[in-house]
Design a binder for these strands. Sequence first.
DNA 1: GATGCTGATGAAAGTGCTGTCATTGCGAGC
DNA 2: GCTCGCAATGACAGCACTTTCATCAGCATC
Lengths: 354, 354
Amino acid sequence: MKGKPTSFDIAYRAGVSQATVSRALRDSPLVSEDTRRKIKAIAKEINYKVDKHASSLRRQQAETLAVLLFEDPTSDDSLINPFFMSMLASITRSCARAGYDLLISFQQLSDDWHADYQDSHKADGLILLGYGDYLTSESKLSKLAEQGTHFVRWGPSVPGQAGLTVGCDNVQGGRLLTEHLIRQGRKRIAFIGDASLHCPEFLDRHRGYVDALKAARLKPSADLLVTAADSTEQVGHAAMATLLARGKPFDAVFAASDLIAIGAMRALSERGMRVPDDIAVVGFDDIPMASFTNPPLTTVLQDTRLAGELMVATLINLIEKKRPAENAMLPARLIIRRSCGASLVATANVKPGR
Amino acid sequence: MKGKPTSFDIAYRAGVSQATVSRALRDSPLVSEDTRRKIKAIAKEINYKVDKHASSLRRQQAETLAVLLFEDPTSDDSLINPFFMSMLASITRSCARAGYDLLISFQQLSDDWHADYQDSHKADGLILLGYGDYLTSESKLSKLAEQGTHFVRWGPSVPGQAGLTVGCDNVQGGRLLTEHLIRQGRKRIAFIGDASLHCPEFLDRHRGYVDALKAARLKPSADLLVTAADSTEQVGHAAMATLLARGKPFDAVFAASDLIAIGAMRALSERGMRVPDDIAVVGFDDIPMASFTNPPLTTVLQDTRLAGELMVATLINLIEKKRPAENAMLPARLIIRRSCGASLVATANVKPGR
DNA sequence: GATGCTGATGAAAGTGCTGTCATTGCGAGC
DNA sequence: GCTCGCAATGACAGCACTTTCATCAGCATC
């Protein structure tokens, strides 16, 4: 046999028409059980697979999703937020389970990637990861939505937004961590992050932090708020240096991400300060690294597996219109390790430091 | 306009035939400069993109590559070897640059994924990551090769292998690390890894280790060899426990991967042993985590960016047959941090512990 | 004036599949 | 015996492109 086998080859061998082959392979009820079995057997024997392009062209759908992962243009390849990576793993699996293929592309936020995937019919829908600030990119997203492109974004949902989002309850996460620190007897808890609209996740985490402080009749202080716009170790290190330079006393630090927390801990240890004895530190994300730091980092787990599954499910609902698709918010889960100064023995809900 | 625009829409607007539109958009020399410009302008205006499926069907090529990432079925989602992740980033970029799309799929080694991608014309070629032991899967690979599937594998090249490989010079890396430890005055260097054929990378690293010892007139001792078949933190921790339990003296440990090294360091620190003062530790891979451990891990960098680029380039050469495609081996690069006990000041070629 | 050439274009076949419509064979119902 | 219905199948028209082959005008050559 020359070239890849086609449905005609099977039809010839089975002594039926090519149309019947197509029907049999798609499990149409229009073919008899006998014929179906015969055709499937032959298909298997000659290693036949339905041609993706012909099928997609005819049916006008790609059965493919695309993940666009946006990254900070300055960041090092090797430092891609591991958080997105574990989400990616979950997405690939959910896609496969749903019978969709998955295209992947790493994009710069500045790129004009618009609609390429859907316009060219490469993908039926888009998953947007790391899209950053919703506000500054709103116009792009509304344009996408206008064109009828199906997409789901990871991040907090914003009133009036274009498209759907799946996100984590950052307010709750912030509250959990702060409450936990307060329970450990910490009174002066600094916050490293960004309380502006620039990063809505950080904003929500900060809101949870403030909520918890107020509930405990503690006052959030501007002295203990340091801006860290990016989620990198370097930024965390610098922010901690800034905080220390202010000379205001504090006994705990809430870093808006694990990477920031890791950088902050490095700054502390360089100055001979002990975590958690002198300063308790907590992060956010539960990246794999968090359990290997010294001390292991108390943080909040965003369930990446569930997140990936939900994003895929939501997107497919959007595409197939069989079920309604809506925004989703995942609960945050406190992961207590040693950096917060808790005694592990007494605490429930513990994920060990491995 | 209803539905996505097609090349006929453009043809109509431009007052030319549809064939001319197709030619113009593919920059065929057969159309005049004027016509081409006009057509491209219209295409841009109505946001037209060539339909991927129609084009692929007609041209019988997908302009798509697929990455199959094989993973240990037992491993946690969040612990996907970060090493492959940074490679993945590089692969996505190289693909995009070459005008190929990239499909991604996480596979269990046991899955019968064979040829699905190429048989169904989803992809023109395969990139195999984490394929593990070549020997046990040789039959699958030869079958692939027989069917004419183009693929490139990450890993050491094996004589008589099916398909092409891009890999890192693991022997050289092992030698570099061991020589470095010896230069620091370490005499009894343990090896945690697997010196069997099960994992060819580990085997090669061990070979480099033995080479370096012999060159320094030191004797590799079976007492100081511990098997660690998988590259995980847990396995490293257990292996170190085994080594310590033997009670044989040693002053350094060569872990066959960073994750193993991190586990080993945890085991040491649990027993109150100091790294590097009591025991020097080195790893292999330079995963992002390696610079954040305490102390930061001395290791060998495999240039994932270059690796990704090379794999894509090799695969495309294979597909397009324009240039010869051949196996490639990347040089290993020593990254000196603190876990080996070197004084950083005196040493060249240092990547700081950040 | 016939021929050949050249550069640009159009017509049309083909790519492999899916879904609609037509056809066939056969048993039931009248 | 004839129609009707039904189940199973076949014929065929796309789907949106790419590419081969044919056409054609314009110009040069003899």
